[in-house]
Write a protein that binds this DNA or RNA. Structure first.
Lengths: 179, 179
DNA sequence: GGTTTCATGTAACATGTTACATGATTCT
DNA sequence: AGAATCATGTAACATGTTACATGAAACC
């Protein structure tokens, strides 16, 4: 049973940065972690409830209102997070539907393959722009983040940039090759 | 309901290259598609049975023996495959446990972070070597593959190479930065 | 004769996504 | 006043993984 609920660790990590609601956690995934991690509500809310029972998180009573439930990490939660951070990360199997489709497309019309590659390139051009914008914002110090965390966010964005650039380069090369 | 069983398409695509057993399909994923797609038996066998009922595949009776069941794609299966190949591919959300861990590691000891990055680099160095070997084998024409398919396999491997190189470069940069 | 690879399959479990329901608050 | 965003949650469904059971055939 090498399966572990990674959503739990994502939530612990996010709440360790700052307390927040389930909604905040989702937003964090969609912005800061976008391109590297995603969560959906169908996972976040039930997981938070389970974590509450396990005392990995607790409700910030002072912030509690009718519709808003603010969670914060507990010392036990921090220990759990720490343990996970120290663990080796197993490489996870990849599944790229695009590459799967491409490899089976040798009999497809060339125009269609070129279009596939151009669309794929476009997606990565836009993604690259987004990372560059985020990099710019980070340099300007728009948000209030500790110096420590800033360098980690920079590394994250740099990874996104290099990865997009590699993909774009590959698309160009492959389109040029005519296959 | 935008969910589609992609294993089905992977199986159709593989059987469209050449007929084979469930075991063969798994092997194909672990070799040719490794790094881009994976399947496990718990998915392959039940899916094959379902596909048989739906007449997307059929059993090659002449090759049938007690333990070995060889499948081939049917015309209906080819139509289904074709339709999928023509469809736009939606971008799928990414989940990198390594990046998730890194982003939450700003309070971890520097040595541990460097070790994480070095391990991660090593994995990609080995992966790169594997792709380069496969590229070499393909150039030598070791296997019997049509010219058409060869250029697609080359593109696939080239993607793997560029992607590994980008990751290795990022690891080096990040280690050098000292974060 | 023993080990590895080939070969099929299932049950239990774990994870992930979508659609829907509900309503408050904030912005324009 | 109406639209967008904030906010929580569940049920149904879809997907994915592991562990186990079984045994033949090929290799050394």
């Amino acid at each position: 049973m090498a399966l572990k609920n990674k959503s739990l660790y994502a939530i612990l990590g996010i709440l360790n940065v700052s307390p927040g609601t389930g909604y905040d956690i989702k937003k964090y995934c969609d912005t800061v972690l976008s391109g590297f991690w995603n969560e959906n509500f169908g996972h976040i809310y039930p997981t938070l409830k389970k974590m509450l029972v396990d005392e990995l998180v607790e409700i910030v009573e002072s912030e509690k209102s009718e519709k808003k439930i603010q969670y914060q990490i507990t010392p036990k939660g921090q220990m759990e997070l720490e343990a996970w951070l120290m663990e080796d990360t197993e490489t996870q199997p990849m599944r790229s539907e695009f590459m799967l489709k491409l490899i089976f497309s040798s009999n497809q019309p060339k125009e269609h393959i070129i279009k596939m590659l151009e669309d794929y390139k476009q997606i990565h051009v836009e993604k690259l722009e987004k990372y560059l914008d985020m990099q710019h914002d980070l340099e300007q110090g728009i948000e209030e983040i500790t110096k420590e965390r800033t360098s980690f966010l920079k590394a994250l964005l740099r990874r996104g940039v290099l990865s997009c650039e590699a993909t774009i380069r590959w698309c160009d090369e492959t389109i040029d090759s005519g296959l």
